[in-house]
Design a protein around this nucleic acid. Structure first.
Length: 574
RNA sequence: CUCUCCGUAGCUCAGUUGGCAGAGCAGCUGACUCUUAAUCAGCGGGUCGAAGGUUCGAGCCCUUCCGGGGAGACCA
């Protein structure tokens, strides 16, 4: 049992008192709700005949008591509204317990209550619910952080990121802007889904547990299936499964997929993250660029009513069309170096010249990627399609129709970060097999992100896949842009955290195993003995004096502790 | 993994040169029938992240560890 703070004890006592008064602090029955804070605040000023018989429920978030009348704030799922509670209205008879005892003393900030009443406007002009009936719906035993606000100025905000992420429930209760972010995230998903459904594509679900983690270059999480006695991997991408579905005859498929990558964590990366991948038959990457920019334009409009979105210090304009530039031109433009046609040795030398670290496992593709990542990526603030990546770094992508050294691939850069990645998909099974084999050679050179060969996927391609274009877009990053958040942890409800270590709490039973009776064991913390081992550190006479002193002070009805007993506890310890 | 900053009451934060642990809010007791960061009077509340060290004396100095933020490294 954790040591309780003073305020937690007060709340537990209040809970007991309520029960004694015959009030169930956790009632079973549903509570009728027919009005919400947001609707009242919006509609009542226009028509003050509305809301004359409301029934509402929520948390009590503040309390201003003035004797026989009080104001409190009720927070429901839509917002906050002030309540006016008058003693003789909630307690019309002789018995004023409900107001004097229950409301004023036994209820606390954070408790859920249900109220019935009517809406009016106070002398100070605030829309308020005049309460005629009060019901306890759920007692809160822990004090919430009390965040106050006046004129948009927030006082004593709950800001510690550690506590906010670990106890997101508290964050959501007291920090309204945080709730908004996750509502916006839901709207991003809804808007994107609408866009895709409108086009008639099929939303599908594909395996998260995969025996071959394919479709991307990343290190997977490994788990184990007991019945099959085989390793399984948490998916790093769903690409290969979605393409199998195109082989199967669907014209367009998409999935909002949780992917898992066993790599570093920082402001932009969480081990599990969400990606939307889509694949459409008979299309190429030019079509996909148009589709992508239309989709993002719609999402920005749906969320903000404009295509211009504030992201940090920049205003990003998601209005289509977006600038397009090939990766080699981008490098030429930013560094003045033309890397096209360079072999591996020349690229290593170029990296050296640019001050970019390399290692021998890097092939041509990876080297070009390094140069782009180091010198170019961060410079693309407005949405820009970077196109035509070298074939080595795109093993699932079709070769460029004009240059077989390149592929028909684009990445969409926004605010200096990759947001989306798309291909004209490789559907030549023989070429695909060779590309996988190249990956195996890279793996042998030491690239631990190189791809595995998925033979079933090759088999599917051999049955024939129509020309197809596919695209993946990071939902977390998109949400960061759309909500102007600088950290991925702010757009994931429960970001991955190091497990919270519970400080080892020593209880009476840890002392009782030494043969100590409970009445002494429970006094140990007070006697200055934090843990059993400490007994050996303190002189037995001191222990005896302290315990018997406490016995006298607390008027305990137990025999005084004898030296022999203390000796036996210390003996037991060894 | 490296550097750096932070960890003090339920929350937000002070804490001097190393010398009796503080404030506001929250809580408790009381007053107050339209308040609004309500107000007024009074009161309580601490493993100063953990362990060790230096010292007559450590919230403060040193070491190690734990957790978090930021920057980098690695990495989509």
């Amino acid at each position: 049992m954790q040591q309780l703070s003073e305020q937690e004890i007060v709340r537990r006592n209040a809970l007991d008192e309520m029960k004694k008064l015959g009030i169930n602090p956790y009632p079973q029955a549903m509570y009728e709700v027919n009005a919400y804070a947001k609707d009242i605040l919006e509609q009542f000023p226009k028509d003050n005949t509305l809301f004359q018989e409301v029934s509402m429920a929520g948390r009590m978030m503040s309390r201003r008591i003035m004797g026989a009348a009080s104001f409190t704030e009720l927070k429901d799922s839509t917002g906050r509204v002030q309540l006016y509670i008058k003693r003789d209205d909630v307690c019309p008879g002789e018995d004023k317990t409900m107001y004097n005892t229950v409301f004023k003393r036994l209820l606390d900030i954070g408790d859920f209550i249900g109220i019935k009443g009517f809406v009016f406007t106070t002398q100070m002009g605030e829309i308020t619910v005049h309460v005629t009936e009060l019901t306890v719906l759920s007692k809160s035993l822990r004090p919430l952080p009390v965040v106050k606000e006046k004129d948009g100025q927030v006082y004593d905000a709950f800001t510690d990121p550690d506590q906010r992420y670990r106890q997101r429930y508290v964050d959501l209760v007291v920090n309204d802007p945080v709730r908004k972010i996750f509502e916006m995230r839901a709207r991003v998903l809804r808007s994107m889904r609408e866009f895709l459904n409108e086009k008639g594509y099929l939303e599908v679900e594909t395996p998260i547990l995969q025996s071959i983690p394919g479709g991307a270059a990343a290190r997977p999480f490994i788990t184990h299936h007991n019945a099959l006695d085989i390793p399984l991997y948490l998916r790093i991408a769903n690409e290969l499964y979605l393409k199998r579905l195109i082989v199967g005859g669907y014209e367009g498929v998409y999935e909002f997929a949780k992917d898992f990558r066993n790599e570093g964590m920082d402001r932009y990366h969480n081990p599990e993250f969400t990606q939307m991948e889509m694949y459409v038959a008979y299309k190429d990457y030019f079509w996909m660029m148009e589709t992508t920019e239309q989709m993002l334009e719609k999402i920005a409009n749906d969320l903000h009513g404009t295509t211009k979105v504030q992201v940090g210090d920049n205003v990003i304009d998601f209005a289509a069309p977006y600038k397009r530039i090939s990766i080699l031109d981008a490098i030429k433009e930013k560094t003045g170096i033309d890397v096209s046609g360079m072999n591996e040795a020349e690229l290593h030398a170029t990296c050296q010249k640019l001050g970019i670290e390399t290692d021998p496992s890097m092939g041509k593709g990876k080297l070009i990627d390094e140069i782009f990542g180091e010198k170019c990526e961060h410079t693309f603030i407005q949405p820009t399609f970077i196109t035509d990546y070298p074939v080595e770094m795109s093993p699932l992508c079709k070769r460029h129709r004009e240059n077989p050294e390149l592929t028909e691939r684009f990445e969409l850069m926004v605010n200096g970060k990759e947001l989306a990645n798309a291909y004209t998909e490789l559907n030549d099974p023989i070429d695909q097999r060779e590309r996988f084999e190249e990956q195996v050679k890279l793996a042998e050179k030491g690239d631990d992100e190189a791809m595995y060969i998925d033979y079933d996927f090759l088999r599917a391609l051999e049955y024939g896949m129509p020309p197809t274009s596919g695209m993946g877009i990071g939902i977390d990053r998109l949400t960061m842009f759309m909500t102007n958040q600088a950290s991925i942890q702010e757009v994931i409800l429960f970001p991955q955290m190091r497990p919270e270590i519970q400080a080892k709490v020593v209880s009476s039973s840890d002392f009782m195993v030494l043969g100590m009776p409970e009445h002494w064991a429970s006094l140990m913390p007070e006697a200055g003995v934090a843990k059993p081992e400490d007994l050996a550190e303190i002189k037995p006479t001191v222990i005896q004096q302290t315990l018997n002193g406490l016995r006298k002070k607390k008027k305990l009805d137990v025999p005084a502790v004898q030296m022999e007993e203390i000796q036996s506890w210390i003996e037991k310890l060894k």
